[in-house]
Design a protein around this nucleic acid. Structure first.
Lengths: 200, 200
DNA sequence: TTTGTTTTGCAACGACCACTGCAAAACTAA
DNA sequence: TTAGTTTTGCAGTGGTCGTTGCAAAACAAA
């Protein structure tokens, strides 16, 4: 009996990256299977046999985004320095990444949030869970800062994390609406003026 | 020759309000003509003869939103008090309006921003223009404050207006994701800590 | 009643949607 | 060569999309 079958003519990773860029640019519901197949340079039957259906492909693309181009929300908080420095670095990186010319503007996760409608509740839930994970990363970083006396004990970690996330999500919409990199930079900088005890 | 024809069986304003609520809830692309017609309790032919096509109906619904339920972004800035008071009032009203139980959560204008795709560029432009109008209202209020020595002369009015709008848009996404009214209230309050010279 | 005007109900249009069936193609192992 | 396995190309599925045509219905003026 034989083992290998007909070899596939395309790279799985590359095709997934292409799909991600398309979903990122146009959103889940406005990206058609035929658009995807054409951009990925494969047939729809190959698409289905390789990635399952449209929802699975989207979720896999979303996870690729989170672990790749969108991973800065996690990684920028992990390097050294104070919590304020961490989030300053996060906003700076975000301003840069959200306005790059070689990829869609804005954050794929944020832009996916209001996109779904009836019948797609499962996807809505999946997106929300990933968003919540990101927020939890903020919370954990702030809680650590509190333990390390890097933040005053009276600070509401939950609230501060939410505010920072709110700012970041707003920046995504601004980027999608055409805001410039330098403008986003200044917005992030200004937001950090609300940091507990930020000003002299 | 006769003047009047067959009288219409429905109220134009009421039907438009119904359409607005549907668009607000599900977005432009995910609201079908049949869904609209059924909710408005009219036939599709009546819908087309009364409102033109789907895009015109959406734009009319959007303007109804702006002049009605979404009008607080303008009106709350017009009453007396300092500029800081104005925006504090704006955020408070927003927190209340974005989380009301008797209407869709979030701001219809903000949620419409990332919704459109290829072929709908005209609509995208129309939405962006209305968003820009709103931002301009912020700017004007801040410019007035500067003239009235209510804001220090070194303040970047453009930037502050953008930051406040960014926060408001972020709050819309948070509301859509299920954030509570009191939580949004606190987020708005915290954002205003970034106001020039806000803290003692 | 007749004529003119407007709305209504209903059915249909072509275009697109996500998705699948099927057989030929392209490989590996025997 | 042969048998077994997997992918590919392509056509086609039923369903839904926004939009329209048409004739009957319901009114006002002549």
């Amino acid at each position: 009996m034989g083992y290998g079958g007909r070899p596939r003519k395309f790279e799985r990773d590359g095709a997934l990256e292409t799909a991600m860029l398309l979903f990122w640019e146009h959103g889940f519901e406005q990206t058609g299977i035929d658009d995807l197949a054409k951009a990925m340079r494969i047939s729809t039957s190959s698409l289905y046999s390789t990635f399952g259906d449209k929802r699975q492909l989207f979720l896999e693309a979303l996870d690729l985004y989170r672990s790749g181009r969108g991973g800065y929300t996690k990684t920028t908080l992990e390097v050294g320095g104070s919590a304020l420095d961490s989030f300053r670095r996060l906003f700076e990186t975000a301003a840069r990444e959200l306005t790059r010319g070689d990829q869609p503007r804005g954050c794929m996760l944020t832009l996916s949030l209001p996109t779904f409608s009836q019948g797609l509740e499962e996807l809505q839930v999946e997106v929300s869970r990933r968003r919540a994970e990101s927020l939890d990363g903020f919370r954990k970083r702030l809680a650590r800062a509190k333990r390390e006396k890097d933040l005053p004990p009276f600070v509401d970690v939950n609230l501060l994390a939410s505010f920072l996330m709110t700012t970041l999500m707003g920046m995504s919409l601004q980027a999608r609406s055409g805001a410039s990199r330098s403008h986003l930079l200044k917005i992030g900088e200004l937001a950090l003026q609300a940091w507990p005890g930020a000003r002299p």
